[in-house]
Design a protein around this nucleic acid. Sequence first.
RNA 1: GCCCGCUUGGCGGAACUGGUAGACGCAACGGACUUAAAAUCCGUUGGCCGUAAGGCCGUCCCGGUUCGAGUCCGGGAGCGGGCACCA
Length: 857
Amino acid sequence: MSRYNFRETEAKWQTVWEERRVFAAADDGPQPKYYVLEMFPYPSGRIHMGHVRNYTLGDVVARYMRARGFDVLHPMGWDAFGMPAENAAIENKVHPAKWTYANIDHMRGQLKSMGLSYDWSREIATCDPSYYRHEQKMFLDMLAAGLAYRKESWVNWDPVDQTVLANEQVIEGRGWRSGALVERRRLSQWFLRITDFADDLLESLALLERWPEKVRTMQDKWIGRSDGARIFFKLTNSPSGVADSIEVFTTRPDTLFGAAFVAIAVDHPLAAALAQQDSKLSRFIAEAGHLGTSEAAIETAEKKGYDTGLRAAHPFIPGHALPVYVANFVLMEYGSGAVFGCPAHDQRDFEFARKYGLPILPVVKPKDADVAAVGDAAYEGDGVLVNSQFLDGLAVDDAKAAAIEKLEELGQGRGETVYRLRDWGISRQRYWGCPIPIIHCAACGIVPVPERELPVTLPEDVSFDEPGNPLDKHPTWKHVTCPTCGGKAVRETDTFDTFFESSWYFARFCSPQAPQAFSQKAIRRWMPVDQYIGGVEHAVLHLLYSRFFTRALRRCGYEMPAEPFAGLLTQGMVCHETYRDAEGRWLYPEEVRRDENGQMVKISDGSPVTVGRVEKMSKSRKNVVDPAAIIESYGADTARLFMLSDSPPERDLEWSEAGVEGVWRYVNRLWRLVTEAELPAAGTAMPNSLSQELIGARRAIHKTIKSVSEDLEKFRFNRAVAHIRELTNLLGELAERSPADSGKAWVLREGFETLIRLLEPLAPHLAEELWQQLGHGKLLAESDWPQFDPDLVIDEMVTVAVQVNGKLRGQIELPRDAGREEAEAAALALPAVAKLADGKPPRKVIVVPNRIVNVVV
RNA sequence: GCCCGCUUGGCGGAACUGGUAGACGCAACGGACUUAAAAUCCGUUGGCCGUAAGGCCGUCCCGGUUCGAGUCCGGGAGCGGGCACCA
């Protein structure tokens, strides 16, 4: 019995595809374009199962669309700047560039062993000066356009990676990469004005119809738009040298008549000014500052305020003034760093008022209540305004508008919208990143590096012996002359956040060798990405930054579409069981086995092993399976098919050795079926008459074309695999069981050819090999997708279910589209139906053509 | 706390816009081939009752709409994810 030799076959076809440049994207091709892209990898050293899943999904789409007649762009590259290279430099005394390029070489080989249909001629590495020089130019353009700026501010400092992090990179108070608790530091940093596009980024989410709802919601929440009002409260008794008013942001201007106090953040400038003359206040501020930023600390922190003694005049009630507190729950970073409190209609203000004995005046009456009353909680819902002079009787929304109108009329405030989103801090105190092309001159200030001097490249002779930024400590690199005045000056030693590189790489792929960042023609040809595929973890990182970048670049005059990614598929994680030994140490899957009694034991000494939850594969838990080992022992096609067959792409996938074995058995079964079948020569005409069985088989073949096409169209790859296997089962049975004749042989050829053609996007090497075995000269990868015969996907006879009172009681065979009377008569004739009807005529008969007859008795 | 999603056999999952629940696969069990094993092939496999024909129950729970509900509506539980002193 012959076995499929994947080792030879896969290598063979990979070479053929490469030599014939089958997957080169046609810049000037005649067909409509289709750009499919997977999130490019960080070159950490070797690919993991997450990569295998991601790139398999993308490859299926790319191969399918190519077969469907599109000119496909399917590129691959390397997100090559980043911390691990520096860590490797520190640990192994190897230069980050050398380490990175060695990893790229190794991983490229691994990707090629998967048979992915990339146009490798477009490969890019972001750490290459020929790549990053363009983003230095972009940065200078953004600077000129006012989209990049420098400011001193509180930043998130990662003490382990010794660098600053953007807000998006802080997950639950910890660095997204290091996991270290983030500290606050005040530093001068470069920012990109992403907030300038907040509204557009938010509103355009509605247009991204082919994005998962989940990701859109996450971005929506992250941008966090709030509509409300800015209100100026005049201070009636502010000491000299201190501001005489406070600006407050609120989403509830309607509740202004219920205001009981004004509160400012502990780091509000006014609080700092007051603290100069008030030692108790400065102590209060110091204590509040100690409060951690961690979730738990915030959760348990008591709402505390300090009455400054200042009084703020109510904008609508002459002579009425509110106490001004410094409060630990007011955030300087949000709104204006100051709020007014309306205890009756905000739970936090309610608690604060109770604690400090402040009045609680209800101003919103719930619709179904007789009077507005103070209960034991704030009422935050809709209703009608009361106790509010000119607002009385208005609904909340109308009252908001009326209050804003009045504020504007009085010059006491104005309508305003604020966002949670903050500008993107892009400075990183690291070596292995793109240098920020700026020179600091004592005389001229901040001076952009002149364009003719780009790229600013990294020095190679750097030392990682001490902590901190090697660029800053380099003896000569940063010392330059000022391009403006010629005096002594220093380079910016910070580098860009590595999300900078990944914010435009998809556009570079369109013309990777262009002397400028992108050729206009190439952008028009290929952008936007039609289908983007990657992990959901980038929902508010990379995916938001990239959307911002296309907008910023457009404003700077670059050719760029409105949105970078028209379609998005977020794939689930690859998971595996976890194992621990008796001491609680994690074990690799290959260190354990199931013994004769079905118990999991350690292979080395037979000691018992605890099987833990199925979790995302991670090095720390050792529940990882190395794709290289799988490809080595089963081949790429088996790994690919398994990845596709068990779960829908957006759901998590549990890696199972048994499942892989099952796919491997399938691969061999198909191999044998096709290679052992006796088939007529390719192109033989269909015999004049076929038996009913063979016509049935042909129907199944053409139905499979239809359903697999639909499945691939909708990314239901697991169903596509199921349909392919179903047809395999049918053809296998036909081959073995029915008598041999020329008709059968012909149908088998049609069946196998179809099967192989449908399988190609999923398992390309096996399909290509079998295609050749069937006598085809033309490559399958260059062949068209099959068409189904419309007559064959419609059955002549249909099975109709017969129900009595909605319960299934039998089935009848009817000609397709049989009339109501015929269906009804056939159903009533069933003994089971007659029995239940008990001789009486049915009260009602519902006939759903070709589906069901329901007899109601 | 707020928002979103999910819940179907032992397991992963099918079921088009309300119309025969459990496709396809994994695991398990039985059998064939074999000296034996591997490989391969055939069969069984939601639960309960029954020798059988067949019947009853069954898509997280409770209720509703409907001739008919895994699918729609109301309420609840569990799990997962996002955000979180956001004014």
